[in-house]
Design a protein around this nucleic acid. Structure first.
Length: 476
RNA sequence: CGAGGUGUAGCGCAGUUUGGUAGCGCGCUUGGUUCGGGACCAAGAGGUCGUGGGUUCAAGUCCCGUCACCUCGACCA
């Protein structure tokens, strides 16, 4: 038994193999396969189904915030990228360049978008004339390409799927508020749907987006104590407005540069879910993102009446709005149990001859492995159970996270070894030298600047007066 | 780009030291018995040993080159 479970390392005692555990799980659960080009991944149907639930949930939330979806081209003239100085400096090293097309060398090279600020701003500048045209609040679901040196499925790949929102506003206040509203939207989404608690805050100068005035980040803690930047929201000020001539005629009949924001989350969130909830048996998906929330497994399916009853049961659940499926494949029940546990399906229902006789089924939870009988006329308890599991998973993650957050006056030795995989809140003077020293000495980086009061504190590195309390952690 | 490692059946690997008929496990196909936690028996199918060159009567194995991928470091959603 359990021959194929060997791949799953025991992550209860977190060890250096955790990243390998992650990759193994992602591949074995048929979320992705390696693509033919280095650093690319083929997202398989099961993995894509998770992405689709994420899209559906986010679109719902976006709509409530007045966001409209649109689509912009994948190829961007190289000159666009060069218009904003910081932006080009930040992205130039990792863009893929198209130099030939139609059998000829192009007059101007095209970059495959690493992000779409430039081309979208170019279009916005054409559309924008009056203050009445503002705000523009558009999102696009797209693929982008960044030629990363080392990659890991979902967490960092050359090509990835994401949504990028790009907004333009008449005033600084409105733009800042928009960036924060989206940050809040993401935080709620991660809590309520992914069941991953996050820390939010402003990024340091060193870590912020190339071309932004301010970057807000969402940092999620993985089970091994490392941090994952799960999403960002940028206040871009007038940087891009000036680079792309996004001007409008205001009420006072003068031309003004607009203020813009951008914000995005990617397929990395799937990686976050894997790493935040996974265990020795593989994935564990919160019901809200699980493509299949309830898997119905017939036992002794060849016997008369079993498949019919299983089918009926599945249909009833679907009728209640539950994403339920019947696993009718020709395989033993034990094999199916293990596979669906590995794939993280939150609830399993077994139904066999004995159950049918007794008018019940057996319900099993993925989050805590509880198993119980449920009379077939009480199926309405399943949706309830799903929301219980959802809450339970968030709580569990929050407890684990809070147990790994420490406050410190100095960072010496605090990140040493495996035991040192912590989220550390420490005071910081605000200078770049100290930030870089921390990174060099501890391999940990400043994740976000917290809202905590730094009055009376001194920098954990240089001992000078502290400006901020910063959350430090090692990151993926 | 720096360091290390691996390329042999769909997947995971052995075989390389000491050159001599291409192997194992899983998976796959067929038939039968099974089915409440990864079933069993039997019979099968499946390989230009990453690639180019060299040495040799003979190369998966030795020599030189080359390519690809993986892991760890500097960047990112």
């Amino acid at each position: 038994m359990a021959k194929e479970q060997q791949f799953v390392k025991n992550i209860a005692d977190i060890n250096e193999d955790f990243p390998q555990w992650y990759t193994d799980v992602v591949i074995k659960t048929e979320l992705v396969d390696y693509g033919p080009v280095k650093g690319t991944m083929v997202i398989r149907p099961y993995g894509y189904a998770i992405w689709e639930t994420i899209q559906t949930e986010l679109n719902k939330r976006f709509k409530a915030l007045g966001v409209k979806n649109a689509y912009f081209p994948m190829l961007i003239p190289e000159s666009y990228l060069k218009r904003e100085a910081e932006h080009v400096e930040g992205f130039a090293p990792e863009v893929a360049l198209v130099t030939h097309a139609g059998g000829e060398k192009l007059a101007e090279n095209l970059v495959i978008r690493p992000t779409s600020e430039t081309i979208i701003c170019e279009m916005y500048s054409k559309w924008l004339q009056s203050y009445r045209d503002l705000p523009i609040i558009i999102n696009q679901w797209a693929n982008v390409m960044r030629w990363e040196k080392t990659t890991r499925p979902f967490l960092r790949t050359s090509e990835f799927l994401w949504q990028e929102g790009h907004t333009v506003h008449a005033t600084e206040d409105e733009a800042r508020a928009e960036a924060l509203a989206m940050l809040d939207c993401y935080e709620k989404f991660m809590n309520e749907v992914l069941a991953i608690p996050v820390f939010t805050g402003i990024k340091t100068e060193k870590e912020k987006f190339a071309g932004a005035v301010e970057t807000y980040g969402l940092e999620a803690m993985m089970l091994d104590g490392k941090s994952l930047q799960a999403g960002t929201s940028h206040y871009l000020g007038q940087n891009f407005a000036k680079a792309f001539d996004m001007q409008f005629l205001d009420k006072d009949n003068t031309h003004k540069y607009a203020y813009s924001t951008s914000w995005g989350v990617s397929t990395r969130m799937i990686g976050a879910v894997v790493m935040a909830h996974g265990d020795q048996r593989g994935l564990s998906l919160p019901p809200a993102v699980a493509p299949i929330q309830v898997i119905v497994i017939p036992v002794a399916q060849f016997k008369e009446g079993v498949m019919e009853n299983a089918q009926k049961l599945t249909e009833k659940l679907v009728g209640m709005g539950v994403r339920a499926e019947l696993d009718a494949r020709d395989a033993s029940p034990g094999w199916k149990f293990n596979e669906w546990e590995m794939k993280g399906c939150p609830v399993r229902i077994e139904i066999g001859p004995r159950d049918i006789e007794a008018g019940k089924c057996v319900v099993s939870r993925r989050d805590n492995f509880e198993k119980f009988d449920l009379p077939l006329n009480e199926l309405e308890k399943i949706p309830e159970l799903l929301s219980t599991i959802q809450k339970n998973m968030l709580e569990k993650s929050r407890k684990i996270r809070d147990g790994k957050v420490v406050s410190a006056k100095t960072l010496k030795g605090i990140f040493d070894g495996v035991e040192g995989r912590n989220f550390v809140k420490a005071p910081w003077c605000g200078c770049r030298e100290c930030e870089e020293k921390i990174k060099n000495d501890t391999a940990a980086s400043a994740r976000v600047i917290t809202k905590d009061n730094a009055e009376g504190e001194v920098c954990a590195v240089c001992g000078k007066k502290a400006k901020h309390i910063v959350l430090f952690a090692r990151a993926y």
